[in-house]
Simulated scan of single mutants.
Amino acid sequence: MNVHELVSVLADPDVLRARCRALALLDVVLGGSAPRHDYFPGWRAGVDLATRENGSGDLYGVVFDPAGVFLYGFDHECDATPWREWPRAHWPGLLEGLPAALAHYPADPELQFEGFFDATVCVWREADAASWRCGPVVFAPGESDGAGWLFRVLTDGSAETVCSDAEDYYERPVDRQAVAAILAGAPVDRRTVSVLNPVAGFEAVADRARWV
Protein backbone atom coordinates (compact mmCIF):
# COMPACT_ATOMS: atom_id res chain seq x y z
CA MET A 1 0.00 0.00 0.00
CA ASN A 2 1.25 3.47 -0.87
CA VAL A 3 -0.28 6.85 -0.13
CA HIS A 4 -2.79 6.61 -3.00
CA GLU A 5 -4.29 3.51 -1.40
CA LEU A 6 -3.99 4.98 2.09
CA VAL A 7 -6.38 7.84 1.30
CA SER A 8 -9.07 5.29 0.42
CA VAL A 9 -8.85 3.32 3.68
CA LEU A 10 -8.34 6.02 6.31
CA ALA A 11 -11.25 6.42 8.68
CA ASP A 12 -13.17 9.68 9.01
CA PRO A 13 -11.45 12.24 11.27
CA ASP A 14 -13.59 11.63 14.38
CA VAL A 15 -13.01 7.87 14.19
CA LEU A 16 -9.31 8.42 13.52
CA ARG A 17 -8.98 10.72 16.52
CA ALA A 18 -10.68 8.22 18.82
CA ARG A 19 -8.44 5.44 17.53
CA CYS A 20 -5.29 7.52 18.07
CA ARG A 21 -6.33 8.27 21.65
CA ALA A 22 -7.12 4.60 22.29
CA LEU A 23 -3.72 3.48 20.99
CA ALA A 24 -1.97 6.03 23.21
CA LEU A 25 -4.05 4.96 26.19
CA LEU A 26 -3.24 1.31 25.55
CA ASP A 27 0.48 2.08 25.63
CA VAL A 28 -0.02 3.89 28.95
CA VAL A 29 -1.70 0.82 30.41
CA LEU A 30 0.82 -1.64 28.97
CA GLY A 31 3.47 0.46 30.64
CA GLY A 32 6.45 0.19 28.36
CA SER A 33 9.49 2.32 29.18
CA ALA A 34 9.32 3.75 25.66
CA PRO A 35 5.67 3.85 24.55
CA ARG A 36 5.25 4.15 20.81
CA HIS A 37 1.93 5.98 20.70
CA ASP A 38 1.32 9.39 22.24
CA TYR A 39 -1.59 11.80 22.16
CA PHE A 40 -1.14 15.48 23.03
CA PRO A 41 -4.43 17.33 23.57
CA GLY A 42 -3.92 21.07 23.21
CA TRP A 43 -0.56 20.64 21.47
CA ARG A 44 -1.30 24.01 19.92
CA ALA A 45 -4.27 26.27 20.70
CA GLY A 46 -7.28 24.19 19.68
CA VAL A 47 -5.03 21.63 17.99
CA ASP A 48 -4.27 18.04 19.06
CA LEU A 49 -1.33 15.89 17.92
CA ALA A 50 -1.11 12.11 17.81
CA THR A 51 2.24 10.42 17.19
CA ARG A 52 3.84 7.01 16.87
CA GLU A 53 7.58 6.26 16.88
CA ASN A 54 9.14 2.82 16.64
CA GLY A 55 12.51 3.67 18.20
CA SER A 56 14.37 3.10 14.94
CA GLY A 57 13.71 6.47 13.36
CA ASP A 58 10.38 5.65 11.71
CA LEU A 59 7.31 7.58 12.80
CA TYR A 60 4.00 9.16 11.97
CA GLY A 61 2.05 12.15 13.19
CA VAL A 62 -1.58 13.22 12.91
CA VAL A 63 -2.47 16.86 13.49
CA PHE A 64 -6.11 17.51 14.37
CA ASP A 65 -6.77 21.16 13.56
CA PRO A 66 -10.19 22.87 13.39
CA ALA A 67 -9.28 23.58 9.75
CA GLY A 68 -8.74 19.89 9.03
CA VAL A 69 -6.40 16.97 9.60
CA PHE A 70 -2.79 16.70 8.44
CA LEU A 71 -1.23 13.23 8.56
CA TYR A 72 2.37 12.38 7.74
CA GLY A 73 4.69 9.41 8.04
CA PHE A 74 8.41 8.75 7.69
CA ASP A 75 10.00 5.45 6.71
CA HIS A 76 13.74 6.07 6.75
CA GLU A 77 14.54 3.06 4.54
CA CYS A 78 11.89 3.41 1.82
CA ASP A 79 12.47 4.69 -1.70
CA ALA A 80 10.80 8.02 -0.91
CA THR A 81 13.07 8.94 2.00
CA PRO A 82 14.38 12.51 1.78
CA TRP A 83 17.77 11.06 2.71
CA ARG A 84 18.13 9.45 -0.72
CA GLU A 85 20.03 12.58 -1.79
CA TRP A 86 21.82 15.51 -0.21
CA PRO A 87 20.65 18.09 0.57
CA ARG A 88 17.51 16.24 1.63
CA ALA A 89 14.56 16.61 -0.70
CA HIS A 90 10.97 15.45 -0.57
CA TRP A 91 9.66 12.92 -3.08
CA PRO A 92 8.27 14.94 -6.03
CA GLY A 93 4.67 16.00 -5.42
CA LEU A 94 4.63 14.99 -1.74
CA LEU A 95 3.27 18.33 -0.47
CA GLU A 96 1.77 19.60 -3.70
CA GLY A 97 -1.84 20.66 -3.18
CA LEU A 98 -1.60 20.94 0.59
CA PRO A 99 -4.28 23.55 1.46
CA ALA A 100 -3.17 26.89 2.85
CA ALA A 101 -4.94 26.29 6.18
CA LEU A 102 -2.66 23.30 6.87
CA ALA A 103 0.43 24.25 4.87
CA HIS A 104 2.31 25.68 7.85
CA TYR A 105 2.69 22.33 9.63
CA PRO A 106 5.64 21.01 7.60
CA ALA A 107 7.47 24.18 8.69
CA ASP A 108 6.71 23.67 12.40
CA PRO A 109 10.07 23.11 14.15
CA GLU A 110 8.53 20.48 16.44
CA LEU A 111 7.68 18.36 13.41
CA GLN A 112 11.11 18.73 11.85
CA PHE A 113 14.44 16.98 12.30
CA GLU A 114 17.51 19.17 12.02
CA GLY A 115 15.50 21.89 10.30
CA PHE A 116 13.83 19.64 7.73
CA PHE A 117 10.39 18.02 7.59
CA ASP A 118 11.28 14.34 7.27
CA ALA A 119 8.30 12.69 5.59
CA THR A 120 7.69 10.01 2.98
CA VAL A 121 3.87 10.05 3.25
CA CYS A 122 1.55 13.05 3.51
CA VAL A 123 -2.26 13.08 3.55
CA TRP A 124 -4.77 15.75 4.47
CA ARG A 125 -8.45 16.41 4.79
CA GLU A 126 -9.95 19.87 5.17
CA ALA A 127 -12.77 20.30 7.67
CA ASP A 128 -15.46 20.57 5.00
CA ALA A 129 -14.05 17.86 2.71
CA ALA A 130 -15.69 14.49 2.16
CA SER A 131 -12.49 12.56 1.51
CA TRP A 132 -8.75 12.42 2.14
CA ARG A 133 -6.29 13.87 -0.35
CA CYS A 134 -2.60 13.53 -1.17
CA GLY A 135 -0.16 15.06 -3.60
CA PRO A 136 0.42 13.73 -7.15
CA VAL A 137 3.28 11.45 -6.17
CA VAL A 138 4.28 8.73 -8.64
CA PHE A 139 5.98 5.43 -7.86
CA ALA A 140 7.56 2.98 -10.26
CA PRO A 141 6.75 -0.72 -9.75
CA GLY A 142 8.38 -1.90 -6.56
CA GLU A 143 8.95 1.58 -5.12
CA SER A 144 7.49 2.33 -1.70
CA ASP A 145 6.76 5.25 0.61
CA GLY A 146 6.24 3.07 3.70
CA ALA A 147 2.52 3.80 4.01
CA GLY A 148 1.55 0.14 4.15
CA TRP A 149 3.36 -0.80 7.33
CA LEU A 150 3.48 2.63 8.96
CA PHE A 151 -0.31 2.96 9.08
CA ARG A 152 -1.38 -0.69 9.17
CA VAL A 153 -2.59 -0.60 12.78
CA LEU A 154 -4.16 2.84 12.45
CA THR A 155 -6.13 1.96 9.32
CA ASP A 156 -7.18 -1.51 10.48
CA GLY A 157 -8.09 -0.61 14.04
CA SER A 158 -9.28 -4.12 14.97
CA ALA A 159 -8.50 -5.60 18.38
CA GLU A 160 -6.73 -8.53 16.74
CA THR A 161 -4.36 -6.33 14.71
CA VAL A 162 -3.72 -3.98 17.64
CA CYS A 163 -3.00 -6.92 19.96
CA SER A 164 -0.68 -8.63 17.50
CA ASP A 165 1.26 -5.41 17.06
CA ALA A 166 1.48 -4.83 20.82
CA GLU A 167 2.55 -8.42 21.47
CA ASP A 168 5.34 -8.08 18.94
CA TYR A 169 6.57 -4.90 20.61
CA TYR A 170 6.09 -5.78 24.30
CA GLU A 171 6.96 -9.46 23.83
CA ARG A 172 4.15 -10.74 26.04
CA PRO A 173 0.52 -11.81 25.56
CA VAL A 174 -2.06 -9.02 25.36
CA ASP A 175 -5.69 -9.68 26.28
CA ARG A 176 -8.01 -9.23 23.28
CA GLN A 177 -11.11 -8.44 25.32
CA ALA A 178 -9.41 -5.70 27.31
CA VAL A 179 -7.97 -4.14 24.17
CA ALA A 180 -11.36 -4.27 22.44
CA ALA A 181 -12.86 -2.40 25.39
CA ILE A 182 -10.24 0.35 25.18
CA LEU A 183 -10.73 0.66 21.42
CA ALA A 184 -14.49 0.97 22.03
CA GLY A 185 -13.90 3.90 24.38
CA ALA A 186 -14.62 2.15 27.67
CA PRO A 187 -13.12 3.78 30.79
CA VAL A 188 -9.91 2.22 32.03
CA ASP A 189 -10.78 0.43 35.27
CA ARG A 190 -8.83 -1.68 37.73
CA ARG A 191 -9.68 -4.93 35.98
CA THR A 192 -8.45 -3.66 32.60
CA VAL A 193 -5.17 -2.50 34.11
CA SER A 194 -4.62 -5.74 36.03
CA VAL A 195 -5.33 -7.87 32.95
CA LEU A 196 -3.06 -5.88 30.65
CA ASN A 197 -0.30 -5.04 33.12
CA PRO A 198 -0.41 -7.01 36.39
CA VAL A 199 2.62 -5.20 37.83
CA ALA A 200 1.21 -1.70 37.30
CA GLY A 201 -0.44 0.32 40.03
CA PHE A 202 -3.91 1.44 39.02
CA GLU A 203 -3.59 4.94 40.49
CA ALA A 204 -0.35 5.61 38.62
CA VAL A 205 -1.83 4.41 35.34
CA ALA A 206 -5.04 6.37 35.88
CA ASP A 207 -3.05 9.53 36.59
CA ARG A 208 -1.08 9.16 33.35
CA ALA A 209 -4.21 8.25 31.40
CA ARG A 210 -5.84 11.55 32.32
CA TRP A 211 -3.35 13.32 30.04
CA VAL A 212 -4.27 11.31 26.96
Rank of each mutant, 00 (worst) to 15 (best):
M1T: 15
M1A: 13
H4A: 07
E5K: 12
L6P: 00
L6Y: 04
S8E: 15
D12K: 13
D12P: 10
D14I: 09
V15H: 14
R17N: 08
R19D: 02
C20Q: 05
L25M: 08
D27E: 10
G32K: 06
G32V: 13
S33T: 14
P35F: 03
P35N: 08
P35D: 08
R36F: 04
D38N: 06
G42Q: 05
G42P: 01
A45R: 14
A45Y: 11
G46M: 03
V47C: 03
L49A: 08
T51G: 03
R52I: 06
E53V: 14
N54Q: 03
N54V: 10
G55W: 11
Y60G: 01
V63G: 00
V63L: 00
D65N: 10
V69R: 02
Y72C: 10
F74S: 05
D75K: 03
H76D: 14
D79H: 15
W83Y: 07
P87F: 11
R88I: 02
A89P: 02
W91Q: 05
P92K: 13
P92A: 13
G93K: 12
G93E: 01
L94P: 03
G97S: 06
L102E: 02
A107R: 10
F113Y: 08
G115P: 05
V121T: 06
V121A: 03
C122G: 02
V123T: 05
V123G: 07
E126P: 02
D128S: 13
A130P: 02
W132T: 04
R133I: 11
C134V: 12
G135F: 00
P136N: 12
P136E: 00
G142I: 06
E143C: 02
S144H: 11
G148M: 14
G148Q: 13
L150F: 08
F151Y: 08
V153C: 01
V153A: 06
V153P: 00
T155Y: 12
E160T: 13
D165Q: 08
A166D: 04
D168P: 04
Y169I: 09
E171V: 15
V174R: 02
V179A: 04
A180L: 03
A180D: 09
A181E: 15
A181M: 10
L183Q: 03
A186F: 10
D189S: 08
V195F: 01
V195M: 00
N197W: 09
V199R: 14
A200D: 07
A204F: 06
V205T: 12
R208L: 15
